[in-house]
């Protein structure tokens, strides 16, 4: 299959920087120049610049840009507070909202020719997932102290040998499902688009998949955030 044209990689190559041709390169510089890294920085720069441009000077009567952000942030804040309570929302809103914005933009950016989704690499999604997974255990430990282990023990003592493995397995399944679902969905979208573009790009064959791609991107970002919120809420509430 032909290598997709990624304009940041081309720019870096003309600058003389080594761009890896496999999924991950050798050596630090090659790893830093891997497409999913460079496009992650692009998404970060995009989000930063847009926020700076629209929210640079806050006004009492909001303009168009500020209105958009107020609607978005307000909506997310309400959603989190509904699902995991006010206290947790206030503490973790910056993290989860950043994840939501980053994942949504990173998913959608892959639909434009010349760009790729950073989330189409398992490295990115696994990093996001590990942060969520570790922090939901930290929330549990902080809330309940050492008696957090009761979350994994079930309601009665004679069910412990049955329920402990089940709880542990389903807890580790969170790690696997959260990272591989996001990665798989986005990579499938990217690969399908690339193949269709190569086969019948002149006949607009990728167009319906692009339409579906928008839906998948938004839904996957939403799923990630929803599951994060649910895990945080479950870690905080009392054991059965």
């Amino acid at each position: 299959m032909e290598h997709p044209i990624l304009f940041i990689s081309i720019i870096l190559e003309t600058l003389g920087l080594p761009v890896p041709h496999g999924p991950v390169g050798h050596g630090l510089i090659q790893q830093l120049c891997a497409p999913y890294m460079t496009y992650t920085w692009l998404v970060m720069a995009f989000l930063f610049l847009v926020a700076k441009l629209t929210l640079g000077n806050l006004e009492l009567v909001p303009g168009n840009g500020q209105n958009f952000w107020e609607l978005l942030i307000g909506g997310m804040d309400d959603f989190f507070a509904d699902n995991m309570g006010r206290e947790l929302t206030d503490r973790f809103f910056p993290m989860i909202a950043t994840f939501a914005l980053y994942i949504a933009v990173a998913n959608l950016i892959g639909l434009i020719p010349g760009f790729m989704s950073p989330t189409a690499s398992l490295n990115t999604t696994l990093a996001l997932t590990l942060i969520v997974w570790v922090s939901h255990h930290l929330i549990g430990l902080r809330e309940h102290g050492l008696s957090y282990y009761k979350h994994f023990m079930g309601p009665v003592w004679w069910l412990v040998p049955l329920l402990l493995p089940i709880e542990l397995i389903s807890n580790f399944a969170r790690l696997l499902s959260l990272s591989i679902r996001l990665f798989g969905n986005i990579m499938a979208k990217e690969t399908l688009l690339a193949i269709l573009f190569m086969l019948a790009g002149g006949f607009f064959a990728p167009l319906p998949i692009m339409l579906l791609g928008v839906l998948v991107s938004v839904v996957q970002a939403m799923v990630f955030v929803l599951l994060t919120v649910v895990y945080f809420a479950q870690a905080q509430e009392h054991a059965h």
Binding site: P165, S170, F172, A173, L176, S177, V219, V223, L226, L227
Partner: peptide, 25 residues
């Protein structure tokens, strides 16, 4: 529609990964 998809869309994958982790272990 998007909220419903987000609520139920992950069930299949979580189910499969739980079985895979149990079997792998």
């Amino acid at each position: 529609f998007v909220q419903l998809l987000a609520n139920y869309g992950h069930i299949g994958f979580t189910f499969v990964s739980a079985i895979l982790i149990g079997l792998g272990g």
